[in-house]
């Protein structure tokens, strides 16, 4: 063997500089090809005339400028969908934030059957959404809803009753009830996620801080407002941001529960994009509709980055 060894091919794979990029390559390629590229395509589609039948952008003449945006904007349903998306998200997430705080506090206490309660409370998140929502769909059935039956039994529904004379409420068939139902199911679905994130934050509050507060004689409400909530604020922000994303971009609940009905009164951006883009075959307009999700997502991503950076600084 020679006295000095310079760059030896055999040891190429032992170098960080070689191995690092090599290891990252598949993930980066995957994400660029199937998230990055589609994201760009989403924008291109929105300015083009692609359809399911002809999904290719082949040349300049496939671009139509702001035609799609003009078309969807002039459509009454789109504006309904836009408003619904915002309203459903805001209302459901205010409720989620409130309930999640209560539920997290309950789950941080010790009591009999806690594991079971935890399992049940998490079901809406741990089961496939589409299947869980089917359960609600059936519970809110126009004829066989058990809620209707109970209301009939106690004399709230039926001939000569406050909600009568109909024998059914038609939960998913009347505008306001259907909108309420969609919000309710959103709460039901995102509550577990927000709760467990908060719970993680709650259990991370050092015991000695709580002990010190107990010794200082701080009562329940004082502890809540002066210790728990301020310490939980960053993690609450994380929980809220995730919950907002899931609620804001949801398609499943709107589709399975109401299919956007009655008369598009529960249509949201995602479902309307689906109906236009996939069912209606107009990929271009569908993409343009979905693109309206983007500003909110970008804002949330930036907020997340800030939070993560701050957390990083505190740990460092």
């Amino acid at each position: 063997m020679s006295a000095t060894t310079t760059r030896d091919e055999r040891y190429l794979m032992d170098r960080d500089r070689v191995l690092g990029p090599l290891f990252l390559l598949p993930a980066v390629v995957y994400i660029l090809a199937l998230v990055g590229l589609p994201l760009v395509l989403a924008v291109l589609y929105a300015f083009s005339d692609v359809t399911v039948a002809d999904p290719r952008i082949s040349g300049r003449d496939d671009f139509v400028g702001f035609d799609n945006f003009r078309a969807i904007w002039s459509d009454n349903v789109f504006r309904k969908a836009l408003r619904n998306t915002v309203v459903f998200t805001l209302i459901s997430q205010v409720i989620v934030l409130l309930l999640a705080n209560i539920l997290a506090m309950v789950l941080s206490a010790d009591f009999h059957g806690k594991r079971l309660v935890r399992f049940l409370v998490l079901l809406p998140w741990t089961t496939p959404v589409a299947l869980g929502v089917l359960g609600w769909f059936w519970m809110l059935d126009s004829v066989y809803s058990p809620i209707d039956w109970m209301m009939r039994e106690v004399g709230l529904l039926g001939p000569d009753t406050p909600f009568g004379p109909a024998r059914n409420m038609y939960w998913l068939g009347t505008t306001h009830l259907a909108q309420g139902a969609v919000i309710l199911v959103h709460v039901w679905r995102t509550l577990p996620l927000a709760t467990v994130i908060l719970l993680a934050g709650l259990t991370a509050i050092p015991q000695d801080i709580r002990d010190a507060a107990d010794i200082d004689g701080a009562g329940f409400w004082r502890q809540l407002f002066y210790i728990r909530l301020p310490l939980l604020l960053p993690i609450m922000a994380v929980a809220l941001l995730f919950a907002i994303i899931f609620a804001f971009t949801d398609l499943t609940i709107a589709l399975v529960l109401t299919r956007g009905g009655p008369v598009n009164d529960t249509q949201v951006l995602a479902s309307w994009a689906y109906f236009k883009g996939i069912q209606g075959g107009n990929l271009a307009q569908g993409a343009a509709i979905a693109l309206f999700l983007l500003p909110v997502l970008v804002a949330i991503a930036i907020a997340m980055l800030r939070l993560a950076r701050r957390a990083g600084e505190e740990t460092a």
């Binding site: 063997m1 006295a3 060894t5 040891y11």
Partner: peptide, 12 residues
């Protein structure tokens, strides 16, 4: 052992 090992990985 009189051999420059700068570019050798630990195992070598």
């Amino acid at each position: 052992g009189d051999r420059v090992v700068n570019d050798l990985p630990p195992r070598a």
